[in-house]
Each structure stands twice: as C-alpha cells, then as structure tokens.
Amino acid sequence: MFGYIRPVKNEFDNYLFKAQYCCLCKALGRQYGFSSRMFLSFDITFFALLLHALGKNEFIYRYEPCIMHPVEKRRVKTPNQIDFLSADISVFLAKKKIEDNIKDEKNLKRLFYQSLCYVPFNWNRKKLNDYNILNKLFDDFDTQEMLKKMNSDELSNEFGKILEQVILYASKRTNTLIPNQTIHFAFLIGKLIYLLDAFEDLEQDLKSWKYNPLIFENKDIILSYPKKVEAALCIRKEEKWRLYLLLDHIQYSFSFLREFLGIYLKEIDGIITKSLPAMIDRVIKDETNQIEKGDLHESRSL
C-alpha cells in the first residue's frame, strides 16, 4: 500500500487515527517481530478505523511508551481481532509489494528487495498462505498488468476489486457487519490508490519505460513531444479530470456511510473531505515540481 489515505499533517483533532496507527504498530511488532513495523501503512490504518467504526466498536485506549517518541507516552488503542487481522493484511500486502518490486527492478535494487524476503522478518509463512483468495486476486492482477492490454480504468478497477475483497474478507473474519455501500466505497478507494500511484510514477515510468497504463493511453502525446518531461506534463493535464471525478465519486459514496460511523465520523470525514483533495493536489503539484526540475536539468545539460 502506498500511504495516500491519511489525515493532513497539521490537523490536530485526529487522535483516533493516531491511536489506531500506534495500535497497529504494536500489533505488528507483537506478531511479526520488531522490523515488520516498517510495513505499517496509513491506508491499512484507515481501513482498520473504518471497520471499527462500522462495527460500532468502543474506542478503548491506554498510554504506552513508544520507541520513536521516547520522551512522552503515546495514546495506543487496545488491540482486538480487527487490529490483529489488519496487521496480517499489512504484512501480506507488503510481501506482495516486495515480490512485485523484485519482478520490476534490476541489479542492486532487486538484490535489496530479495534480501528483504529472507533476512529480518518473521513472515509467518503458514499464516500468510491462508490468504488464498487475496493471493489469487493479486496473481490475476499481475497477469493483467503483464498483458498490458487494459486501460487505466480497467486496471484501477481491478485493483479496486482487490480492496473490495480485502474489506469483505476482514469483515467476515472479524464478524463485523458492514453496510453494502462499504464494498463500493472500498472499491473506489482502491481505484484511487492505483491511479494516484500511476500519476506519481508517470515521469519515472516514462524514463525507464516501465508499464504504466497512462503512457499507453496517451501514445499520441508521447509521440508528439520530443522531451519526456513535456509529455508527462501534458498527460497529467489531460488526465487529471479522472482523479477529480474519482474524488467526487468517493465523497458521494461516503455520504451513504456517514450515519454508520458514530464517534469515528468526524475523523473519517476529515480524511475524505479534507485530506484526500489535499493529497490529490499534492500528487499533481509534486509532479509539476518534478517536471519543472527535470526541465531545468535538461535545459542545463543542453
């Protein structure tokens, strides 16, 4: 996962999210060893928080010491079944991401990722192999990406379906009753994660000719611009309507979930209505900055 779904940094009233994050960190450490904490992602924290909200779980917390913040104790949510399962899913997704990177990268980077598979983590292989459904979904997704025949909508929809299955799986395993709308909401969040990643990697993928559906959908732009940075800028301009439409779709879908969220509503609402637009703007602007820098660099080298 990529950490796109999170509260904006300067927002002070996100104590539930913070306590949830610390809770997952501790749950990961307890189940998979200290180093596995690096696999913790904001996206999974968000999904765990959403599941707690939909399950109408009480938010019980205590203050515990934290190695990253040695001076003060941190508010940590008391972990339950949902949190342990979220920790499992975090590790599962991280493992998939590493496997994916091993396929994509070359030389030193590949060696680094290969080493991650063997050295410091207690992968708890037996437990991870239980996720047959998710494994199959990821394999199907990889095959489709390898075939390079799908457009960005189709591929992002496939990724959305994975998240859809993740939330269904988690709700079944933890006996959490979720409203039907949650499934579509999870699908849209998955779609957004994939598209944001494709947008963010566009420049890099163009340079190294890695597969990115946005490249293959905008062949004429790439063929018309001699400089890749200019082509990337043009594709970004042409395609950003998708991100804004998807944001609108997510907010619309979220409006059906509001009534189920109880005390969690304020924070989850903050993430959807404030942080997500900010994140989309950041991805688009970041890319602009990168392009400007790249442009400068190219013109200097000329």
Partner: peptide, 12 residues
C-alpha cells in the same frame, strides 16, 4: 460535470 469532476455531487 464529468470532465469538471462534479458528476456525482451534482446528482446528489
């Protein structure tokens, strides 16, 4: 509404 990204909010 589609190209300007408010198709769903306008419908809602």
């Amino acid at each position: 509404q589609t190209v300007n990204g408010y198709f769903f909010s306008r419908r809602a």
